[in-house]
Nucleic acid binder design. Sequence first.
DNA 1: ACTAGTTCAAGATAATTTCCTAATCCAGTT
DNA 2: AACTGGATTAGGAAATTATCTTGAACTAGT
Lengths: 220, 220
Amino acid sequence: MFMMHSTLRDATTTNKRSCGTLKETLKNYENILNNIKRYVPLNEEDEQQFISIVRTTKIKRRQFIVQPNFTCSHQTYVLKGAFRSYFVNDEGMEYTIQFAIEDWFISDFNSYVNQSPASLFVEALEDSTVQQIAYEDVESLCDKNPKFERFFRLVAQKSFTFSQRRVLSNLGKSAEERYLEFFNLYPSIIQRVPQYALASYLGMSPEFLSKVRKRLTTKS
Amino acid sequence: MFMMHSTLRDATTTNKRSCGTLKETLKNYENILNNIKRYVPLNEEDEQQFISIVRTTKIKRRQFIVQPNFTCSHQTYVLKGAFRSYFVNDEGMEYTIQFAIEDWFISDFNSYVNQSPASLFVEALEDSTVQQIAYEDVESLCDKNPKFERFFRLVAQKSFTFSQRRVLSNLGKSAEERYLEFFNLYPSIIQRVPQYALASYLGMSPEFLSKVRKRLTTKS
DNA sequence: ACTAGTTCAAGATAATTTCCTAATCCAGTT
DNA sequence: AACTGGATTAGGAAATTATCTTGAACTAGT
């Protein structure tokens, strides 16, 4: 199963740091800073503090940024591109936990918060540019500046409510309803991810997803 | 559907405040404070700050502390007793989101964090004693004292990882495996909750849960 | 442009789980 | 202590979804 994928390389060591002009660099941080500012106001100094722990990296399609048994040392913000995190069980079945496109964070969050060995793969679905922040840096930043403590609290709370909504969909909705819900919530993601990955996110076989889609398109 | 349940009453207004001796009162707060101290150290003053926003209440079996369309104004810590939160869809099907026994928090978390109308019921499964903290009080406490900001961040992060684990179980495990996982993780809860509630948590019909249980007991 | 490897579609069959009905069992109430 | 309504157990028919297979259509890399 492992052999199907390209060899793991640690993104933070094998990829060149992106380094363009100053203007370009500032523009690179605009997105992630605006993301934070949706939750907490930041002044110039706050922004500098945050930027100082961010590291920009390019990731090639099919490359892994997290792999089972290695501790997930970073949270990854997607500046450009697409990722998915997934679990592979003993029989080699894949279960997709999360997709991430521009402006989303992704990681093996369990591994990250407990700094324990990961159980998930996180793989680039396209050539991507990401910004990574290391666990220790985040924790000490939160220590130093409560604004970031709050930001990460609010994000975690929101993530939790999203996950609970997904649990509810899994419990209460049929395969077709789950597809429609995803289609309405994340239309842009559907176009960009392979069908087997989407099927494994929605909890159905790829064949059945194909049938659901056909039923829906011939209906309308 | 509503009529099947006992009439809703707002716990915070209809229940008498528990008021025993001073010693008894301190003992009442010991549990919840120890719970917090598993995440962040608290000094005397921190403890006082927290205690000042906590309100202790008794809840009768079958009483609701949250109901759809009413905003969930409090987080509830279970000092003694048992609760469950669940969603009821248009056809009247129930889906259990969470159980909570001693030392757990429960609420309609989505309603609570967004201060928007709830979609869940939260119902007492036994006569219970709870400690509630109001949204505004929590937010201003977090503002005032970053230790609590951190506590709630860490709790939210942990809750998120738990929810993700559950998503994974729903995706990858069979009904029997999901039951066994729950049985191993929360043996004490199984004894205390009705079977139909557990079935609706595990994502199977009560009849099927009965069959699963029988299969397992006759096997061993 | 060619080739190898992925991805998607479609049908037949099989497995899982629900749905329905009825019979017991149990707890709370009178 | 008997009553009553809800909860659990049981069994078989029915529905949903998975699995397996094959072939066609794309896609990426050479």
